[in-house]
Design a protein around this nucleic acid. Structure first.
Lengths: 336, 336
DNA sequence: CTGAAAGCGCTAACAA
DNA sequence: TTGTTAGCGCTTTCAG
């Protein structure tokens, strides 16, 4: 019960604190006999080093913070898992910071009024612009995730959104679709992901010699499957014709799937659907969902590499890592 | 850059550390003039209190650990979200501990060789029995989640699995189904959730005067949608007839949905399906999934209440909290 | 290869 | 109301 300290072990073993510490840390140069004696003292007392004290002495916490909008959003929960695994592999523990896309919470993540909590932060911003971030960022090592505008001073990991959107659209074009819509979002996307994806979509149309019609860009009112579905339903009601739709997000795509079916359209027969993030859910809708698949594992490991550099003292300018992506082709698009 | 300490602020402001500390903590009795002076010194230096040092001095970390099998499993990610929110509300930060159902990782959660990391632990065990847990549990405040066998010495939050399974089965019976299967899991469920749910299922059958046939208890080989689907497919191939199935888990239910459709059975026409956990995915399958819905928010708040008691020194025997559940009726079962 | 002592930055009891 | 001082438990020079 009463907590045992290093010095207690030292006394029982009849050695100094340093020696006990050496044993605890598996230092090479300790006489076997001593090590033995110390170890049994440790066992007998049930000694467990106090991490807080160690941290104060070393200045390292062995923890990183992972700040993201929602931990139960499929994309973020999947990404978190990989980040957690990678962090564990590298000897860090993960502190979760859920921002719920709240600007105040986002500022708190990096402009934190307290120090010494974590060694570094991996942050997926939604509301904060890169300028804000650069301005507020304290000395804490920081790596940004997601599509925050490129010219940032901070380290940053993302996929090539333009290329990915182009490929997704291309896939639809390959199967003969000609009137392809894009399902975007109105608000809450300051970071420009939608813009970049839209760009890739338009580029694909242009390369195919097709017109880029603003009518075909639908916008959902919020980040939810329902809102995505509503946008589709309204477009259909307004008489818009399209035979394919590239969605900014799997959630939208799922809503779209439902809305299309409700409207009597077959997927992919009448309308083919491409989602984004290759989320777990997309494998269980019907039809299953074709989706742009960011290499989540690569995002996790790149992010941790960059962060670890910073933690180890790297002070250079912001680095940008583009990691791979692919298109997970499933039932919502015809085999091209 | 160079970190600023309390004493630096004190010197600049020409006061003692205690006074600065008072200001930082918003202590009531500080002369306004002094407070002002100290505050500007804080701002000028950009002072931010070092949490690690504070912890060492106070003995409280302000953090709790949340240990669960997989952070990207829909049920756990949803539950985590509520726990994180509740924790934030109560002033705690959440450290994530992903066990991946690995016995070694599970032991590490509570038998940790390090101390002083967190004030308490919320743990959803999969592999560890309650005896193991009780034996290993150090002085750390601990609350268990999930269906670990009841007679534990530790605090524990769960829903009434027997009753919930009974209601789910009852719902099927109400709509006239008579050959109702139960989709269980073979391994990896030491904690007895399956057993309790099976019990409720059987009880419902008995109350309805129906035979309890072991043939109707199907078992998936692992915890995945695929495995759940396979179990259904095999049962169908073996000529088993059933018009309803209660699944131990939404994942199984989702697999079942797919397998039934693949076999040409309509849902809920030919076979009605009930899932468990009322997970996000169930709202986007087709048909949508009827599912037993644990009150996740209640689980989160009860768990935190119990844990906070323990953190505050409560030493009594293990308490068990049964929180509410309901049945989210959707498209996979006919309106009764 | 092992021991002694000086911090790490903050809190809190005790004085003033 | 404000200042002084002794820890919190561990790490880490620097001697021995």
């Amino acid at each position: 019960m009463a907590r045992v300290r290093l010095i207690d072990v030292a006394e029982l073993a009849g050695v100094s604190m340093k020696t006990v510490s050496n044993v605890v840390h598996d230092y090479p140069h300790v006489a076997p006999a001593l090590r033995q004696k110390v170890q049994s003292a440790i066992d007998e007392l049930g000694y467990r080093p106090n991490l807080t004290a160690r941290r104060l002495a070393t200045g390292r916490t062995g923890m990183i913070a992972l700040a993201m909008p929602e931990m139960d959003h499929p994309y973020f929960s999947e990404l978190s898992r990989y980040i957690a695994e990678e962090a564990t592999r590298r000897g860090y523990r993960v502190l979760i910071e859920q921002t719920l896309s709240d600007p105040v919470a986002e500022r708190a993540v990096i402009g934190d009024r307290e120090a010494g909590l974590v060694d570094g932060v991996i942050f997926h911003p939604v509301q904060m612009g890169t300028l804000d971030i650069a301005k507020l960022a304290p000395g804490t090592p920081l790596v940004l995730l997601g599509e925050a505008a490129m010219p940032v001073m901070t380290d940053h990991v993302m996929i090539d959104n333009v290329a990915a959107a182009l490929e997704g659209t291309q896939h639809l074009l390959d199967s003969g679709r000609r009137r392809i819509a894009f399902l975007a979002v109105t608000d809450g996307d300051i970071t420009g992901s939608t813009t970049q994806r839209l760009l890739g979509y338009q580029q694909a149309l242009i390369e195919a010699g097709l017109p880029v019609s603003p009518d075909l860009v639908l916008t959902a009112r919020k980040f939810s499957a329902e809102a995505g579905g509503d946008a589709i339903t309204e477009a259909l009601a307004a008489g818009l014709e399209f035979d394919g739709v590239v969605c900014r997000d799997d959630k939208f795509a799922i809503g779209a799937l439902k809305a299309l079916q409700a409207a009597g359209k077959s997927v992919p027969g009448d309308v083919a659907v491409v989602g984004w993030d290759d989320t777990f859910v997309g494998r269980y809708t019907s039809p299953t969902l074709t989706s742009v698949a960011p290499d989540k594992m690569a995002i996790a490991s790149e992010a941790l590499s960059l962060l670890e550099d910073r933690i180890d003292g790297y002070q250079g300018v912001g680095r940008h890592r583009i990691v791979g992506h692919s298109l997970a082709v499933r039932g919502s698009t015809p085999a091209s």
